[in-house]
Amino acid sequence: MSRFLHIARRDVRLAFRQGIGGLMAVMFFVLAVVLFPFGVGPEVNMLARISAGVIWVAALLASMLSLEQLFQADFEDGSLELLALTPMPLEVVVLAKVTAHWLTTGLPLIAAAPLLAVLLHMNTEGFTVLIVALALGTPSLSLIGAVGAALILGSRRGGVLLSLLILPLFIPVLIFGVGAVDAALAGFTVRPQLFVLGAFFLAALSLCPWAAAAALRQALE
C-alpha cells in the first residue's frame, strides 16, 4: 500500500512539475465546450438541451489527451523496466499510475463541469447528477484508457491509434452518463443510470489493471 501511494505521489508530482501539463486537459475541456455556443448559436433552449452531451463528450476527449503519456515517458527513459522489476505486482503499478492520472485530469474536469453547465444554461436540477455521474464515470475512462495506453507503447503515431482503440470503449460510459443527467432534467429517477455507471467502474477496476499489465509485459519483452 505504501508503495502504491509512493508511485501515485511521484506521478502527481511529475504532472505538476511539468508546468501546465497537468492543467492542459482541463483547459482543453473548457475550450472545447466554449466552442459549442459559437457553433450552434447562442439560443438558450438549444444549448440547455445539448449541454449534458456536450460536457460529457468534451470530458471524454480531454481525459484521453493525457492518456498517451501515461506509460510512454516511463517506457522511453527505462523507468517502466525498473517499475516492472520492483517486488510488487505490475497490476499495482498500473493502478497507482491510473490513480495519479485521474487525480490530475478526472478531478479537475469534475471541478470545472458545473461552471460549463452554467455557461450552457443547463437547468440547475441537473448539476448534482452531472457531478456524481462524472465522478463515477471518469475513473472508468482512466482505467479503460490505461489498457489502450499500454497497448500503443513502442508504436509511432500512438496518439491517433490510442483514440481509435479506446473511444469506442468509452461509448457505454457516455450513454449512461448523459442518460443520468437527462433523466434528472426531465424529472425522472436517476438511480438506474448511476448504478450502471458504478457497475462499469467496478468492472473496469477489476479487469483493466490486469489487461494493461499484460500489455506492458509484452511491450517490455
Partner: peptide, 19 residues
C-alpha cells in the same frame, strides 16, 4: 521474491528530468 533480491542496470538511466 526474485525481483526483491536483484538490482538491474540497463542501457537507460530511468531518470526524470524534472525531479
Amino acid at each position: 521474491a526474485h525481483r526483491a533480491r536483484l538490482h538491474y542496470v540497463g542501457h537507460l538511466d530511468a531518470m526524470k528530468p524534472v525531479l
